[in-house]
Design a protein around this nucleic acid. Structure first.
Length: 423
DNA sequence: TCTGGGGTCCTAGGACCC
DNA sequence: TCTGGGGTCCTAGGACCC
């Protein structure tokens, strides 16, 4: 049976999470900042109404926020992550096939349901009731159409939060597609919008009516799939939850510019620890470690530098110590003294499931005793808080730490930060 | 002063091989 | 004088997503 895709997407997810636990904020405009308190990554409905744009650097909007009483919050991923998994378990309870696409979005397969649209309303109601999260539901025969339907559901109040393309005639759908710019299509970003505009393709309908082959020649295979999906031909399949990641990254900009190699080393060892933890959590090993280092591209007055280097391991590993040694070797290769660095990070590549690597008798493998130590460390860090236990080689240095001035409490995961109700 | 982090997929170009 | 071309692998980088 062909799948029927329902995209369930929470409205203003981060802002909503903040409001749920602090009723005083219920009707106030609110924005949530990125890591490091750099730019605005989420806005409540009231902030959107004030015209605050997504992604804006907060320093350009600080005065505006003060003037209009906008509440500014640092991001609290512990809280959002926990709310996200609650949302996911409700969806999994309501539908056997769920693909978690991002922290606040999932695709569901509603094929076989007697009335997908009605079920969409039920899903919406249940999320509202159980966790106070409002979402939009877009339903269609392809992922790209369900994305577009979701957008229509959110933008047009008359649909009550659910839009199903299958409930509309082709003529009606054409009218909807003609009414929205091509930039609303999933997979069409800024650059493509510009190029398509030059070619006279300005609305969703314009794109849907393009010839697949010529689009492929001019724009590549990705956009060709998008065109076909807009016409109802499914090209992107359903992926079940729990696929192991093929790359694992950990990177962060420094709170300030950093030139001291020891501070960079400290940051890098921290990133490796986090990445290795994620690697072990999905029961994988990796064979490559990429190290990235760069200056701040926004500071045009500074000398610019960015480099990545790949360090292959001599055996696939999930041992923090092994990965750490490789990362530090990479850092020595690309570090240039005297520059003002802004960000560093690591990426683990060539990831495969642990335990099935091809090895011959003489190829080194991870030391099982060390692996038991790692898994013990992981479980303690999981329950007692990240960083409770770490390898001695993980250097502690405050020089590069993030800023997060206005983070709300981790209401749902930390005993010390539970919400308090006064009777 | 202050501009995120994590992920995927595709493509172009160089190196290398036969 | 004339000095291949196609396949594959790797890497870097770009585009997109949220």
């Amino acid at each position: 049976m062909k799948p029927i895709y329902a995209l369930v997407d929470a409205n203003n997810f981060y802002a909503t999470c903040e409001k749920i636990f602090d009723p005083a904020l219920a009707t106030r405009p609110l924005v949530v900042l990125s890591n490091n308190d750099g730019c605005i990554v989420a806005r409540s409905a009231e902030s959107k109404a004030l015209g605050i744009p997504m992604g804006a650097p907060i320093h350009q909007w600080k005065d505006f926020c003060t003037e209009h009483g906008v509440v500014i919050k640092s991001s609290n991923y512990t809280l959002y992550g926990d709310m996200s998994s609650r949302m996911l378990s409700i969806l999994q309870d309501m539908c056997p096939q769920v693909e978690s696409y991002s922290i606040d979005e999932s695709f569901l397969n509603l094929a076989g349901y007697a009335d997908p649209s009605t079920y969409g309303y039920l899903i919406r109601q249940r999320l509202q009731q159980d966790i106070k999260v409002t979402c939009g539901v877009g339903i269609g025969p392809t992922k790209t159409l369900s994305k577009f339907a979701n957008h229509l559901a959110k933008k047009n109040a008359e649909f009550g939060g659910v839009f199903n393309t299958l409930d509309h005639t082709p003529e009606e759908m054409n009218r909807w597609m003609a009414a929205y710019p091509v930039s609303e299509v999933w997979g069409v970003g800024r650059q493509l919008t510009k190029r398509l505009g030059v070619d006279g393709i300005e609305t969703v309908l314009n794109l849907a009516r393009c010839d697949g082959v010529s689009i492929r020649k001019r724009y590549g295979i990705v956009l060709e799939k998008t065109v076909r999906e807009l016409r109802g031909e499914s090209c992107l399949s359903f992926e079940d939850v729990g696929q192991p990641k093929q790359q694992i990254m950990a990177s962060r900009s420094f709170g300030t510019t950093v030139s001291d190699p020891h501070a960079i080393k400290a940051a890098l060892t921290h990133h490796i620890s986090r990445a290795a933890e994620k690697l072990r959590a999905q029961q994988s090993v990796c064979a490559n470690v990429y190290v990235m280092l760069r200056t701040n591209p926004f500071r045009e007055q500074d000398q610019q530098y960015r480099r990545t280097t790949l360090v292959p391991l001599d055996h696939a590993s999930a041992d923090t110590g092994v990965l750490m040694k490789a990362a530090l070797r990479g850092l020595r290769q690309i570090f240039v003294p005297g520059l003002k660095y802004h960000k560093c990070g690591v990426m683990l590549g060539e990831i495969e499931p642990a335990g099935i690597q091809q090895t011959d008798l003489f190829a080194p493998v991870d030391d099982p005793k060390r692996l038991r130590l790692m898994s013990l460390m992981d479980s303690i860090n999981k329950t007692q808080g990240s960083g409770t236990l770490h390898l001695a080689s993980t250097q502690l240095s405050a020089a590069w730490q993030m800023r997060a001035g206005d983070r709300s409490p981790r209401y749902t995961t930390c005993w010390d930060e539970l919400p308090i109700a006064y009777a």
